[in-house]
Design a protein around this nucleic acid. Structure first.
Lengths: 139, 139
DNA sequence: CCGTATCCAATGGGATACTG
DNA sequence: CAGTATCCCATTGGATACGG
């Protein structure tokens, strides 16, 4: 493993000062609190109603679900059909664009999962070394 | 393009309620304000000093650079060598683990870059549709 | 030069109540 | 059911000053 990286990254993709960089926009979206979860729930490709998504996630507030769905819709990754469900209720599903994105996203997630032990070990090791006090939380 | 997605995503990778999920941790890290930029700056594999990174980025405060570097260090993606530089000053570089991660990350970034027009169009289209007022900012 | 400490403004996210 | 509107707290990020 660990193929020696030559260029490591396409400079065009992440050239970014930050503003217009599409990669940063995407990453930013994906890192929002619930975006990943909503994508997972919709990843099976089935159309789902608002309350279905909410129930599958379990503890998300309506405000955050709405916000998250509209964010994904705004980026064209999720589609909302107003009258798709029973009783003419709205349904959500991943768009073709979103489905395409699942592949590289899955690759990155898969990498994180495959290397979770290395990542955990790094964290433990870092935290075990007392820099002085309270180094860098996240979890 | 748009290979028809079957499973779309490895459920093991993004199973997540959120807490322990390694994918979410990684995404969270990557979405921090400066993490992507720092990675870009270090992506050439060369060792760089604190002030070098700062200068290449241009407008980052010392606090944020320190914080960002330590976050990456904590995840084992960046290494700090205390006495690597001239004058025995510390240097930073991507770790082997970090270099490995650059590949899937580059793929995702590359996807965003390749599809930036579709993403932009989706956004414009969404914003053009007046839901009522002020839909969903991010950029 | 390499950071840390402090202070402060802005944002994000949660609980809850309410409307179509 | 499908959201929107409020209120509020916690976290993040920026500017700046200071110490090793």
């Amino acid at each position: 493993m660990a193929t020696t990286p030559r260029s490591m990254m396409d400079p065009a993709a992440l050239d970014a000062v930050d503003a217009g960089c599409p990669a940063r926009r995407l990453l930013g979206r994906l890192a929002e609190r619930w975006t990943g979860l909503v994508l997972v729930v919709l990843a099976d490709g089935r159309e789902k109603r608002f309350s279905e998504v909410a129930r599958e996630i379990g503890n998300i507030s309506p405000k955050m679900l709405s916000q998250t769905l509209r964010g994904l819709e705004r980026d064209g990754l999720v589609e909302r059909r107003a009258n798709g469900g029973p009783g003419g209720r709205p349904v959500y599903r991943v768009s073709p664009l979103g489905a395409e994105m699942m592949e590289p996203l899955g690759a990155l997630s898969g990498w994180a999962y495959a290397n979770r032990e290395a990542l955990d070990r790094a964290r433990e090791q870092y935290d075990a070394t007392p820099r002085s006090e309270a180094p860098a939380p996240i979890a």
